[in-house]
């Protein structure tokens, strides 16, 4: 499989920005914890994409790849920890909604 890769920074930046915007929106516009987690994941996808693009344009593919591998490992652990928090919250509250169960006052 050979795909011709364009060498245009702005093209990639546009797509990165769209993914990023989508992730942020998904994270902020919902009250369901699982959806927030999905938003976080979309954000991480956008960053992974941008790191590889940066490595490609800078001619440091191997370095960028090494960084991305580390990022993916960290991402998994963070997701597992978040999942644990969500499940714990659900077991105590029987709800996935963060906003209407606030026990803390400012």
């Amino acid at each position: 499989m050979t795909i011709e890769i364009p060498q245009a920074f702005w093209l990639y930046f546009t797509f990165f920005a769209l993914l990023f915007l989508d992730g942020i929106w998904c994270m902020l516009a919902t009250r369901n914890m699982v959806r927030v987690l999905i938003g976080i994941e979309i954000l991480m996808k956008s960053v992974t994409f941008f790191l590889i693009v940066a490595g490609f344009l800078a001619g440091r593919m191997a370095l960028a790849q090494a960084l991305v591998i580390t990022v993916i490992v960290i991402e998994v652990v963070v997701v597992v920890v978040i999942a644990g928090v969500i499940l714990g919250f659900f077991r105590k509250r029987d709800s996935l909604d963060v906003s209407n169960t606030r026990e803390m006052k400012g």
Binding site: I40, V85, K92
Partner: peptide
């Protein structure tokens, strides 16, 4: 209660 989990959740986000 769930305060600790909520604190952790905010911190994580």
């Amino acid at each position: 209660g769930t305060e600790a989990l909520e604190g952790a959740w905010k911190y994580i986000l």
